[in-house]
Write a protein that binds this DNA or RNA. Structure first.
Lengths: 325, 325
DNA sequence: TTGAAAGCGGTACCAG
DNA sequence: CTGGTACCGCTTTCAA
């Protein structure tokens, strides 16, 4: 039911009704009450479309992610939806379906649907072009378009410190895809932190199959993976090869994915504060939409170390073997 | 840029421009071409708000789920988004945050945002009220509001058959929460299929802690859980108690959640065809929105059995013990 | 083949 | 304090 309907029914003007509904203009108490009452009676619902047309704002933001079935994104989506809702914003989702092209298409779709702004988690290796619309990018510090993200570098240092504290001195860093800024930043930070304190080498799953047996026989006692998904693969390979974890090899991942807590051994990991990242992204976007100029990017959110079962002290025997060399 | 702008620039009427854009009215070739060219030049984008206001359709559907971080929902959300996109629909998400009240609020939010229809996965134990809007409910056959869902009953029969074929004759059925139609239907179907062919008892995690040791010592050789999440708990308890799986106990779940394939032992499960369920839900909703009356509900989508490492033949010894009793 | 104009449901300015 | 009205961008008769 429209404002007009209320106005007609009550013999007042739409302007007055509008004023009452929006609480703006000054309307006499009794009239306002009558209007409210009648509005309630005929179950008045403001038209989102009319509002959007008039104000030029839809009150809807778009959320673009590379693949919603990747276990990290649902948490992000939930956080985004929660915060957006608190700010009175709706969230339109778009899945890039793992393709760079899909990302461009997804953004175009959302824009044409009239969203007021965009939150994008870029597909690895892609650059988000500056948009006509307010935009928040969730990626990593090394992405120049990055608006807010977990502090992957600090997280990497955390991982390195933890593994050093356990006595490991020969470490394998394991990444998946070099095109990912996030993974690159994590690996780089771990590598830098390990510098001069341990011997570290890096392997990328995109290159070839992981030769876990080979690495272990060369004295590697710990694997720091750039994602829990890769850590999971290491654990799986280890079980296959009869290499016990954490006795013979310590394994650690990133992201604190849901399965990490419930698998056996449970997975030590560097956890992002997903709620905080999404909060800052949405709040930044909200400010940008409302024309707050000179916005400071909310930047980096610290990560934390979660110690679980997959990491343990480097065994004396293994260290001996390494030290003898 | 608006239609008007194009019309003014070219000295024609908005009606003509509109006709060209929508390809409806008959406009002379050369004029049409000029208009298209200029539209392209000034980067014309139709206003979603104006369209929605005029036509009364937003081209957006709402998707309500109880908790997007539950591992089953991202798959559904992806399917819904994919199919909706193919039909030219956008998807607005809403998370009930695990609360019945949240569900009502979520629906209200979406409606007030002007969605054309709703897809709802109900929070367990809640009833979706008939809406003013087209509605598709994804739940289970026993929910009278159900529009489409996996065939949980058939899936339950599948589970029972599989476990019987492996020689198990004493089975524990494990549910979580009786309020869930899905879980109730699964348990009921398994129970019915096992009838007279094996001895089955049912336990609900909402009642009390699972006494796995007790059940095993009474001859139970298999646990059929109503969800992979519960199956995971069984495997975890079993590992704790030193009960080996699948040697001493077979475990099976439902839903083929992402972790099920990658854990150890990998989890045998009854898998829903999530893509098909979401496809039918969206297509049904699309038809309903477009006023196709006399819609037949797309109803039930068959589930399939996925055999993995957590199920094996009932051991001779264990069966002996049971048969002796 | 093209154009004028009404109207979708609001907001906001200006008058009374 | 209340009302009249232009306008947001587009579709859709109805005329010319």
């Amino acid at each position: 039911m429209s404002l007009r309907r209320i106005a007609q029914d009550l013999g007042v003007s739409v302007a007055t009704v509008s004023n009452v509904m929006s609480g703006k203009g000054r309307v006499s108490e009794p009239l306002a009450e009558r209007i409210l009452l009648h509005a309630n009676l005929i179950d008045y619902r403001p038209s989102a479309a009319a509002l959007a047309l008039k104000t030029g704002r839809s009150g809807i933001i778009g959320f673009v992610m590379p693949d919603i079935t990747h276990p990290l994104f649902p948490q992000l989506a939930q956080g985004v939806e929660r915060v957006a809702d608190n700010l009175g914003l709706g969230v339109l989702i778009a899945d890039s379906r793992g393709q760079a092209a899909g990302q461009v298409a997804a953004i175009a779709r959302l824009v044409s649907r009239g969203v007021d702004g965009l939150i994008v988690v870029p597909h690895r290796g892609t650059q988000i072009l500056a948009q006509t619309l307010p935009l928040a990018v969730i990626n990593s510090a090394s992405d120049p378009m990055n608006t807010v993200s977990a502090d992957h570098a600090q997280g990497g240092a955390l991982a390195a410190d933890a593994i050093l504290a356990l006595g490991h001195r020969r470490v394998l860093l394991l990444g998946g895809d070099r095109r990912s800024e996030v993974q690159r930043d994590r690996i780089a930070a771990m590598s830098a932190s390990l510098q001069n304190r341990a011997e570290a080498q890096t392997a990328w799953l995109e290159d070839d199959n992981l030769d876990l047996r080979g690495h272990v026989s060369q004295g590697v006692t710990a694997v720091l993976a750039a994602s829990d998904l890769f850590a999971l693969k290491v654990l799986s390979d280890a079980a296959e090869l009869g290499i016990s974890c954490p006795e013979s090899i310590s394994v650690m991942g990133f992201d604190n994915l849901p399965f990490s807590a419930i698998m056996r051994p449970s997975l030590s990991t560097i956890a992002p504060d997903v709620a905080e990242v999404s909060r800052r992204a949405v709040e930044y976007l909200h400010s940008a939409i409302n024309g707050k100029t000179q916005l400071v990017r909310p930047e980096l959110v610290p990560m934390s170390f979660i110690k679980r079962g997959s990491t343990g002290a480097a065994s004396f025997k293994t260290n001996q073997k390494y030290n003898r060399r």
